[in-house]
Design a protein around this nucleic acid. Sequence first.
DNA 1: TAATATTTTTAGACTTATCTAAAAATATAT
DNA 2: ATATATTTTTAGATAAGTCTAAAAATATTA
Lengths: 219, 219
Amino acid sequence: MHSFTEENYLKAIFKLSKGKSEVSTNAVAEEMETKASSVTDMLKRLADKKLVNYAPYKGVSLTEEGKKIAISIIRKHRLWEVFLVDKLDFKWDEVHDIAEQLEHIQSAELVERLDLFLENPKYDPHGDPIPDKDGNIARHKELTLADLNIRDKGVVVGVKEHSKSFLNYLDQLELVLGTVVDVIDKVEFDNSMTLKINEKVDTTISNQASKNLYIKKIN
Amino acid sequence: MHSFTEENYLKAIFKLSKGKSEVSTNAVAEEMETKASSVTDMLKRLADKKLVNYAPYKGVSLTEEGKKIAISIIRKHRLWEVFLVDKLDFKWDEVHDIAEQLEHIQSAELVERLDLFLENPKYDPHGDPIPDKDGNIARHKELTLADLNIRDKGVVVGVKEHSKSFLNYLDQLELVLGTVVDVIDKVEFDNSMTLKINEKVDTTISNQASKNLYIKKIN
DNA sequence: TAATATTTTTAGACTTATCTAAAAATATAT
DNA sequence: ATATATTTTTAGATAAGTCTAAAAATATTA
């Protein structure tokens, strides 16, 4: 099997691979909160194990096997988050660190039984899609609240940013998954928006916030 | 915090401390399936961290802090076993290896919420008592099936031996937790017993088996 | 109690994962 | 296109945890 550290590197490389075909050593170092020299060492080891394609100075990418492992870890992470929120009543801003540990538990049987117990959820508590057993991931709708115009209506379906402070802020605004929002006004200058949330009070939010909320348009 | 390995050593020393005040290096080595020299190294490290009392050639014992950690790991192990059996429908012979991983997840909040979710179970699927939040452990009733005499009646409340083969054997006999047994006959020569199980067929079991079943006498 | 056997510790080496400092390669800018 | 800046890799060290082989301490037995 692979060490937790190896799994975390694979996950980091997967995350950074969105769009690009190669990921830089420095990018991995930043994501892993470690030094570039440590990354180089690890990339060599992962390349020896055929989990990544790596050529000195040329960046890194996942092999099929490496990708498979990364996705299985993401599947476990997101299923455990559903468990923590749905069954143990944790709030969505409290589950990340625990899921970060649980994602490394090794047992295919456990994952499948957990999936069944949770009734095969398709999304985690932040609206991120849960990869299926075969590693297929539903692509995220890329529409954000910032893309809506005045008089558009939508439902919050996910968050792009997972920080505690952002999630807490959303809780306060009652702007959580499933919330219906109405765009009342949009300021051209800074793209801030005034919203009707859940048919209730009007609230103004920044572009910084609105572009981190995934939306499904309605009407 | 402590590494998984350190936690496993503490757990092993705790387990071996039943009765004795000092545990030998070799005993720990056998329990941990490693070499005595590795154990010596680790005992020095644990002593540095004040988790064990260790003097060369004199054996090892847990400090209060070491004991606290060992018990918290046992609490987590047994709670997770209840989760696996009660919620995910694993069989009692399938949960040990997975709980062995889950017991190292670090989050006091998680443990307390899990405990609540499982409705504060007092025993795990093998009948072993679950330490409470403060580290108190109900002592196991030391009565085994082998201690019963002809015409005695009892309920199976736990197993002393946790091997897959023994647990499978018990499943086949329908001799699981909560099963009522009637001692029909007892052979003086080898202490084998003939039982009426659940008011049904008579079965004969060896002393080797009966002394590994904890019983609560009834009537 | 002296000889032998067993247990435990030490010495030195290996692996994984990390680091700092310096060298090498690549990218940028005048 | 040459100098400068940035990125990446190498070299050498450190820490945790393991091992084998040898030495030291303790226990057993004649």
